[in-house]
Design a protein around this nucleic acid. Structure first.
Length: 442
DNA sequence: AGCACA
């Protein structure tokens, strides 16, 4: 059809069409909002949003040409511009006569997301960081990563399309929080569409793919180091062997760090089974046991080098322990087994989470524990883990999905800079203070 | 703030 492109695009005198072209739409405008906008002028028979490179353009197609003319005419003379969510949108006749809705796979909601990580250092974003980011919205079953012409991409599999959609809506176009990345990594933007996949095939745990439903999946040969032990690190770097038990040493411990504080901090990433605290080299150390390695990896990655309190106080240094199952002989203020199915015995004041825990911490920063402002959603699920119920392993997706994941409405407002705040990854939980992570507090 | 895509 020669008629489409025979005219230059940038013209104010587009001939009338049933189809209107809208631009300057707010972020992720919905079809419903387009219909609302056009409804006063006639019958909207079709819409298409998220059009254009910035995905801030849209089309509205009316049943009748006169209706489109009515809308254009109205706003041409109106003192109030057309608005969506308070943002002025600009209208003109489209150079097309109808909307062709090529619903591509990328538009059809599914449980698997195709994530493109944009940025200079996109390749340096580890699968663990992706896992952390997407876990805020529900249990992540599997992740695969790969490089294509589009760049560094990942497929992220959720239980269902609803969960995937909430993640997509919240994360598409946002950048990965800086505090989740090494300081020298350039900003990485996430572009997210749906994938046509429904179930990813992950044969090995490796630094390119993970199956979180099956922690016993063999580890890829490429991820096994010379000592026969495996390491799945950032960018494939060799690391100490991973373990489900973390060894945390607390540096600059100006303020008491209690068992309950540690439990709360580490529960943000999954159920904590056992904790043992002890003194070593004049400092305090703790062993924290998770049911599986994956959870420990995520916790270590998020917490390493960060301080529990503002000002660099109680800075955590975390490594993997060689232990896999701690032997807790007695539950006291230095050691606890949260898996013993007798809450009363285990924890006389069980729900330390969700309430106002740890008032005993005599730190200036302690007041931060009170606020709900930074309660990471993961603390909510972990509250359920806290009271001695046998911990649900990460490998039980069926149960994981029932966790009270953060409803979309509770996503915090985006800052003007477009930074996303990811409460789940405010990971460092109670310390919550404003920026939740201070990689270099000194 | 200027016309869609596998």
């Amino acid at each position: 059809m020669a008629s489409v492109s025979s005219q230059p695009q940038f013209r104010y005198t587009q001939p009338p069409s049933k189809v209107l072209h809208l631009r300057n739409l707010p972020w992720e405008c919905t079809e419903e909002e387009l219909i609302e906008l056009g409804k006063p002028f006639g019958k909207v028979v079709n819409t298409k949003c998220n059009v254009g490179a910035n995905r801030n353009q849209a089309f509205i197609e009316f049943a009748d040409l006169n209706q489109a003319i009515a809308m254009i005419s109205y706003y041409a003379s109106s003192s109030e511009p057309a608005q969506v969510r308070g943002k002025t949108v600009y209208l003109q006749y489209s150079n097309r006569q109808e909307i062709v809705n090529n619903k591509t796979t990328a538009d059809v909601a599914g449980n698997v997301l195709l994530v493109t990580i944009e940025g200079q250092d996109a390749r340096l974003v580890s699968i663990d960081v992706l896992h952390l980011v997407f876990s805020a919205f529900g249990f992540v079953h599997k992740i695969t990563t790969f490089e294509k012409t589009a760049g560094f991409q990942a497929l992220v599999q959720f239980s269902d399309a609803e969960t995937a959609t909430s993640a997509k809506n919240a994360l598409d176009g946002r950048i990965i929080p800086r505090y989740l990345l090494s300081e020298n990594i350039a900003p990485c933007t996430l572009r997210i569409t749906y994938s046509a996949h429904t179930d990813l095939s992950v044969k090995f745990q490796s630094h390119r793919s993970r199956d979180y439903t099956n922690p016993y999946l063999p580890v890829a040969p490429s991820a096994i180091d010379g000592s026969g032990q495996f390491s799945l690190g950032l960018d494939g770097k060799k690391l100490e062997p991973e373990s489900n038990v973390l060894l945390a040493s607390i540096e600059n411990m100006q303020y008491a760090v209690t068992l309950d504080v540690l439990h709360m901090v580490f529960s943000a990433f999954g159920p904590v089974q056992k904790i043992a605290m002890f003194d070593k080299n004049g400092g305090v150390q703790a062993l924290i046991q998770y049911p599986d390695v994956q959870t420990a990896v995520v916790a270590k990655e998020a917490l390493e080098g960060h301080s529990i309190y503002d000002g660099g106080f109680c800075k955590l240094h975390i490594s993997y322990s060689r232990h896999t199952d701690l032997s807790i002989k007695v539950n006291n203020d230095r050691s606890r087994d949260y898996t013993i199915p007798n809450p009363a015995m285990v924890n006389p004041q069980p729900s330390i989470l969700g309430q106002q825990p740890v008032q005993t911490v005599g730190a200036p920063g302690a007041h931060q524990y009170n606020g709900t402002q930074y309660a990471p959603p993961h603390l909510q699920p972990s509250a359920g883990w806290a009271s001695g119920v046998p911990a649900v392993p990460q490998s039980a997706p069926g149960q994981m999905t029932s966790y009270p994941y953060m409803p979309p409405a509770s996503m915090p407002q985006m800052t003007p800079a477009g930074m996303m705040q990811m409460p789940a990854h405010s990971g460092v939980p109670p310390a919550g203070a404003v920026p939740p992570y201070r990689p270099n507090p000194m």
